[in-house]
Design a protein around this nucleic acid. Structure first.
Lengths: 241, 241
DNA sequence: AAGTGGTCTAGACCACTAC
DNA sequence: TAGTGGTCTAGACCACTTA
């Protein structure tokens, strides 16, 4: 994983930045870094691009590369965070103990919408997995997931009570690294209120996603309803290509 | 803007994909594309990487590059969309007429938090701009923005009643292309209900952002409260570096 | 074994900033 | 004018998939 040249540079620069080695908020120029690390300038550029896309540094043509002082400030609280790594299972627990309560688990025919999203023929089946996620025994999210049975024919209640993605990574040797995500808000339903302990006036955050395997196969459609105090999706956005 | 080689390739490939030229969902291999476009393979790779980060294609080592059939499906409705271009002013209006109603406009001392986020000294001032945004005369968003006066000393009610970012781009010759965004949900306050026409049980979507100029200068802190039916932030997420 | 995408290099030249 | 990041090239070699 980290034996690639540009990834080593990323890791090391990250460390140096966090250690406040560049007190003037300015990084050495690319040609010097190329010398320092004994790698080509292209590799340095690639590493710097990754850091820039994360919002950690800004590059300014003609003057240099600068650290974003706001980057550090941005680690707030004990919330459920999507962040740029925004995958369901990447929970920012910060000490709290995450757990899963399986509410329902069955196999059903794929609806028309699921057929579209998961590339299924009309007669194919999916698992419907309804789970309640908790942090320190406090419920914060209701998650309903749909997975084609043909992708993981051997799924069972045991597996499904833990992290499915971890299981997939081990059994299929294919990680879930990409997704379409949609984030919105909604009034809470009676079920939301009951399961998440909400008052009738309190809302839920809604996150829906289609998750893909490495090779582009749509793996899961997931609809999540979160206690509003636990939903906080943070991201760094850049409009450049 | 679009005279760069890799951007031309992006534009053209986009066109060809949308025109369904690759009916088998497979793109030509990189070396062939390099031939076709008469550019280096590196430039092809750069273009393909951009398209892959947008979720339009998947690359699979050893077998080829494939179009994501779900990409097209994803243009839903008349909602306010953040998307990857997620800047306040990039409104997906889809025919609806956007307008702005200025609610309040004054100059105040920067709070401690604003000093941190906008890099201000304790005695510096900011504009506080409170606006109501509408689509076809239907209010959908309350926006409170804070901008250091020193960055745009000549701001006035006239300017502020339109798009500030457009104004900045013209007057400072620096675009607002990067931001930290945080998305969450909240119960509606009495003011939300009044301004956005919400019932007491209906929630708001909350988006907060720090917007940066090209050179990394924090330009604006913005807190937005949206009618929940109009907030839908969609994005493609990839965990790879 | 052949084909495909991934990594990495060395170097030329351009565009912008600062002095 | 010197220094900085941006673009682009040509080519070597590696890692993985498919047959």
């Amino acid at each position: 994983m980290a034996d690639l040249v540009y990834q080593q540079v990323i890791t090391d620069l990250n460390k140096r930045i966090m250690a406040n080695e560049f007190a003037d908020k300015k990084l050495p120029d690319e040609r010097s870094l190329s010398e320092q690390y004994q790698v080509s300038r292209s590799s340095i550029k690639r590493a710097l691009n990754v850091l820039a896309n994360q919002g950690l540094i800004f590059k300014k043509r003609g003057s240099g590369t600068f650290i974003n002082p706001l980057y550090l400030k941005n680690q707030s609280s004990f919330k459920y965070e999507g962040t740029n790594l925004g995958i369901t299972d990447s929970l920012n627990t910060e000490g709290a103990q995450p757990s899963i309560q399986l509410l329902d688990f069955q196999v059903i025919p794929a609806s028309q919408e699921l057929q579209q999203d998961l590339f299924l023929a009309p007669d194919e089946f999916v698992y419907e997995i309804k789970r309640l996620r908790l942090l320190d025994d406090q419920p914060f999210m209701i998650e309903v997931g749909y997975i084609p049975i043909k992708l993981v024919p051997e799924l069972n209640r045991q597996v499904v009570s833990k992290s499915i993605f971890t299981y997939v990574q081990e059994s299929l040797k294919s990680a879930v690294t990409k997704s379409f995500l949609s984030i919105s808000a909604d009034a809470s339903t009676a079920e939301d209120q009951k399961l998440l302990g909400l008052k009738p006036t309190e809302p839920v955050g809604v996150m829906s996603g289609i998750f893909f395997l490495d090779d582009g196969t749509p793996f899961e459609v997931s609809n999540m309803r979160l206690h509003y105090k636990y939903m906080k999706y943070t991201t760094f956005v850049s409009t450049e290509q």
